[in-house]
Design a protein around this nucleic acid. Structure first.
Lengths: 232, 232
DNA sequence: CGCAAAGTTGATCATAGTCAAGTTCTGTGG
DNA sequence: CCACAGAACTTGACTATGATCAACTTTGCG
């Protein structure tokens, strides 16, 4: 099952950094939990949840990629998170009185998802308290990431934010190649995550390419010398 | 007990907006939980927790005010949250394997706090699962607030961010007067929460004062016409 | 009274966003 | 297999926003 594969780049502290929903359950229990989910197969560009709707379902991405974003009043899309296989979303559904989804989720490529109803996931969380604990862990991790992003946005330059974002993405969803780490992302999405306009992203990436720190291709980045991105 | 008083301004949806740690427990249970805490009495400007330390204690503010912030590499203080009576912090301590505190907490005035050790709060959370659920609720609420702040920072002007911050603070910690809602905050702190320099905050507040929307005094703001702040 | 904290106000300027006008690149259908 | 539409990207010129700095004034407290 794809859920068990992990292509992330290993790095110190990795274990604690990306808490998983099913961590700590025995294989048998995991199977039970997954079996009680519906499986959704979606083509790309499908809407999954919508910001502001009542959080009535919990989702676990098995394969594919999902973007999680919000729309500003002006109509711009602000990326909150790239969801990669093994990650959950719609966590508000775990509460007795569900809250509302914070963002909108949309498949970026063909996806397979495990989906639990509010009732079902509440039952499971009651049976396996570890699930609720993992959810808390995951949400705390998001808070940590968001506060980093907030601090970055306030105190760093566009260049620094881009550098940090590339490094983080490289760890989370980079594919190791013989000549570096490849990241499948467009300038636009990268800019969205780094809180930088796509033009600034393009300029900075070109600059780094000229310096030999990375190579840029349509829709992908090959990070050659990550250490040279972080000059501080 | 001060914890039961609530001086916030009532507004639609209020109940769901500020989830509390002890919500849903019977009076007897609340008493038990509080009795098993240490009580700390701190003078103002006392450090309570430090960003990066292992989250080994959970805190519940009973009286006073606490600021929760992080320090940037450049040494600037970024306010993450004003903690008001009834709110908890150090939530990472609820996890089996505690994570690290995300920010630094410091009393702004004399404070009384309930403090639980990691072991104690884990016992309590096991006995009363509602506590863990409330914690999840609280953390989700923070995420929602942070993502609002992020969106605001990206897509709004300094003026709009200030306006939104004043409104939010008014609801959360404003004191109702005969002629408006009073907010005890300095330009500097307000700017910190709105992600605006104290100079910009000063200018904008003066502007609003000239327009009769609010009145400014050293360390306090009297909001006269909150509706006129949100012109969109 | 004196000092520090809080606030004001003006001048200046850097950052990065916006807009315009392009150039590739890629997948699709004829 | 080629044409072409549209997505992805590049590059330059321009500029608005709000930060920064400096030089104040005002306020409140010990």
């Amino acid at each position: 099952m794809a859920i068990t594969t992990d292509r992330r780049i290993a790095h110190p502290g990795d274990l604690s950094r990306h808490p998983r929903f099913l961590s700590g359950l025995k294989a048998e229990q995991k199977r039970l939990v997954l079996q009680s989910a519906e499986v959704w197969k979606l083509p790309r560009n499908s809407a999954i949840i919508h910001a502001g709707d009542l959080a009535t379902k919990l989702f676990l991405l098995n394969t594919g990629r999902v973007k999680y974003y919000r729309i500003t009043k002006k109509g711009d899309e602000v990326l909150l998170w790239w969801i990669t296989p093994g990650e959950i979303f719609g966590i508000g559904s775990l509460l007795a009185t569900p809250v509302r989804y914070i963002g909108t989720a949309e498949s970026v490529e063909g996806c397979e998802l495990f989906v639990w109803s509010h009732k079902k996931i509440r039952q499971l969380a009651a049976a396996y308290p570890r699930l609720a604990e993992n959810a808390l862990h995951i949400v705390l991790h998001y808070i940590s990431e968001y506060s980093d992003r907030l601090i970055g946005l306030i105190s760093e330059t566009a260049e620094q934010r881009l550098a940090r974002t590339i490094i983080r993405l490289g760890r989370r969803m980079g594919h190791v190649q013989s000549d570096g780490v490849e990241l499948a992302i467009t300038n636009e999405s990268l800019g969205g995550l780094a809180d930088v306009s796509p033009f600034t992203a393009s300029r900075q990436l070109k600059q780094w390419e000229r310096e030999g720190i990375l190579q840029k291709d349509r829709g992908k980045i090959l990070i050659v010398s990550p250490e040279r991105l972080l000059v501080d």
